[in-house]
């Protein structure tokens, strides 16, 4: 009996106690947990799935509990005294299978229908999309291109995508090298970015805010450090962002910060682009409006002057395997480069 009590306690703690134990402590952090789609999804591409998740989780926990109770009851229920060597009848108990499987089948049938309904809801936006971006996965960052019929309005940026609140936005997904997966969990499920293929998905945020994303298909050494951010903002802020991004780099800065500019051209321009200058490298993020972004190195660091210089000088330590080398800069070089980069608004 002691043993059976122990079975009971342990099993319960497994089934109910542990999630209960973790969830509350986690819930405090969850507001902080930037990828917590399970509790904090937003927008019509993600919310129906979140509710499906709640229904399925609740149902699963309930079924788990019921089965566990059945099993425990089966283990500890009192039995009439019988001869030790007696063997039970083979025919007994078959109705368990009929009833249990019957109920399971009904539940599953319901779930199939419910999940189809959710898929139909989230697969396509209910209104036509006016805005489109192309996101291309690179090892290990994201190139973002604004799509527009007028080529003059198009622009390229990286790792930070702005969208207007309340509008569906179409995202075309490409890959420049291996398979990545585009995943901004609070706004939508993931879609693979397959080289040679253009996949599509859509996003819509109903509340302003920063929604984190993450590459979620193993893509090599830098896989852990391939994040992006989607900034949802009011329509007028979004328009401002579009206009700002379409600009070339300010020419005054280029002439005023000459030593830093030259150093950049010598060391950085092979990979990075600054529109309006000779820096036209295509292997790395476009830096024309570097300082408009919250984060650098595909989500790894905050975009502060200190962190930026830390990144430039120790990229290989911070993000091993990255295409960005660690630059050995003298103090003076570092300061002129920093002051030049600070002009890239």
């Amino acid at each position: 009996m002691v043993l059976l009590a122990r079975i009971m306690i342990t099993t319960f703690s497994m089934m109910a106690f542990i999630p209960m134990l973790i969830l509350p402590t986690e819930a405090v952090e969850a507001a902080e947990a930037p990828l917590n789609y399970f509790l904090y999804s937003d927008g019509p591409a993600a919310k129906p799935t979140m509710y499906l998740g709640w229904v399925l989780t609740g149902l699963s926990l309930a079924i788990c509990l019921i089965i566990t109770l059945l099993l425990l009851a089966a283990l500890i229920r009192k039995r009439p005294k019988m001869d030790q060597r007696a063997i039970g009848n083979e025919g007994k108990g078959i109705h368990w299978i009929y009833i249990g499987t019957g109920i399971s089948t009904l539940i599953l049938f319901g779930l199939v229908i419910y999940s189809f309904m959710v898929v139909n809801k989230v697969a396509k936006p209910s209104q036509p999309t006016m805005l489109a971006f192309t996101v291309t996965g690179y090892g290990w960052w994201w190139k973002i291109e604004y799509e527009h019929d007028d080529p003059a309005q198009r622009f390229v940026t990286a790792n930070e995508l702005h969208i207007p609140v309340g509008q569906p936005v179409r995202i075309k997904l490409k890959s420049a090298d291996v398979i990545h997966a585009f995943w901004v969990p609070k706004l939508a499920g993931k879609t693979q970015m397959v080289p040679g293929l253009i996949n599509q998905q859509w996003l819509q945020a109903d509340r302003p805010g920063i929604y984190s994303g993450q590459c979620v298909q193993f893509c090599g050494v830098g896989h852990a450090h391939m994040g992006l951010e989607v900034v949802a903002e009011r329509a007028e802020d979004f328009e401002k962002w579009l206009v700002a991004q379409q600009q070339m780099a300010a020419s005054s800065a280029i002439s005023n910060e000459k030593p830093g500019y030259e150093l950049f051209m010598e060391r950085c321009a092979g990979c990075h682009t600054i529109r309006g200058t000779d820096a036209q490298g295509k292997h790395a993020p476009d830096l024309t409006h570097l300082n408009s972004r919250h984060r650098i190195a595909a989500g790894l660091l905050m975009n502060t002057p200190d962190q930026l210089m830390e990144w430039i000088m120790h990229a290989q330590k911070l993000k091993p395997g990255s295409r960005m080398p660690s630059f050995a800069l003298s103090e003076q070089e570092a300061s002129v480069l920093a002051s030049f980069l600070s002009t890239l608004d």
């Binding site: 399970f38 799935t49 998740g53 399925l56 989780t57 699963s60 959710v118 898929v119 969990p185």
Partner: peptide
Amino acid sequence: GLSGVMVAAISLNWQLNET
């Protein structure tokens, strides 16, 4: 088995897969 059923729901799979 139950977590398997959750993963089989297509749109939820788009969230859960590869996590």
